[in-house]
């Protein structure tokens, strides 16, 4: 269980409080520059913050320690790699092992990318590599169900097929008992794959809770200043929000 007690950071976050329970898959929604990444980096311990950050009653404020890396990982939004490293080497250099968990290898279809330099891959292929790279860091903890997985826009640059694959993978990870928090921009995918959502606007939490309670056309309109229409599919009783 992860608890945020009024986290604040100048110009980044204002009094963010929340409780994320094991097995929950959270999506952070909000306009550009509203503070989604700030919440994630604050939880990762990379932001100078006031307030308290508790992971199962353990204080995990800044600075991150080596022990924290056993259970907490962060997929950053911008990837930095300055040299022509191959995919395999990436895993070895960050985790001291060439091993890529079977599930990640299959789901993200990395088998044929392994020996190529990361620079030579397309944007979407690179994103798949980075998702696997950062999840591998905490994979043993994920399997035990005590990992804290933070992902900043994991589906950016992915085609629809891999978007769904990735979101399913992330939902599965949370169902093992891990806490998963990701930022996201597609409201309908959030309705489909998230269990909970947090709406962030102007560095503050607008609303948070169960996905079906939080994501409504009215709240989305307040969040994005954009009109949405709600459609209902009677046969599956699923809701869809479409931009007006």
């Amino acid at each position: 269980m992860l608890q945020l007690h009024s986290l604040s950071s100048p110009n980044r976050l204002i009094e963010v409080s929340a409780e994320f329970n094991s097995g929950e898959c959270w999506h952070l929604l909000g306009p550009n520059g509203s503070g989604k990444s700030s919440v994630l980096t604050a939880i990762a311990g990379l932001l100078q913050i006031e307030g308290r950050l508790l992971w199962h009653d353990m204080n995990i404020d800044k600075p991150p320690q080596i022990e924290h890396a056993q259970f907490r990982c962060l997929l950053p939004q911008k990837h930095q790699l300055y040299f022509e490293v191959t995919v395999k080497e990436c895993f070895f250099m960050l985790h001291q092992s060439f091993h890529i968990p079977e599930l990640l290898l299959d789901t993200l279809q990395l088998e044929q990318l392994q020996d190529k330099p990361v620079f030579s891959l397309s944007g979407g292929e690179q994103q798949r590599v980075y998702i696997a790279l950062h999840l591998t860091q905490v994979w043993p903890a994920i399997e035990k169900g005590n990992a804290l997985v933070l992902l900043d826009e994991p589906t950016q640059q992915l085609d629809p097929f891999f978007q769904i694959k990735t979101l399913e993978l992330i939902a599965n990870v949370s169902q093992l008992g891990n806490v998963v928090i990701q930022s996201h921009h597609d409201v309908n995918q959030t309705l489909e794959f998230a269990s909970h959502a947090m709406l962030i606007k102007k560095h503050q939490v607008l609303n948070q809770g169960k996905v079906n309670d939080v994501i409504k056309s009215v709240s989305m309109q307040a969040l994005y200043n954009q009109d949405f229409i709600e459609l209902n599919d009677k046969s599956t009783s699923k809701r869809y929000l479409v931009v007006k």
Binding site: A44, L46, P64, E67, A69, Q80, L81, L94
Partner: peptide, 15 residues
């Protein structure tokens, strides 16, 4: 130094 190849953020998260 290997960790740093992936950027400051990632190296920091590694501890």
């Amino acid at each position: 130094l290997n960790w740093l190849l992936f950027g400051e953020q990632t190296a920091q998260v590694k501890g």
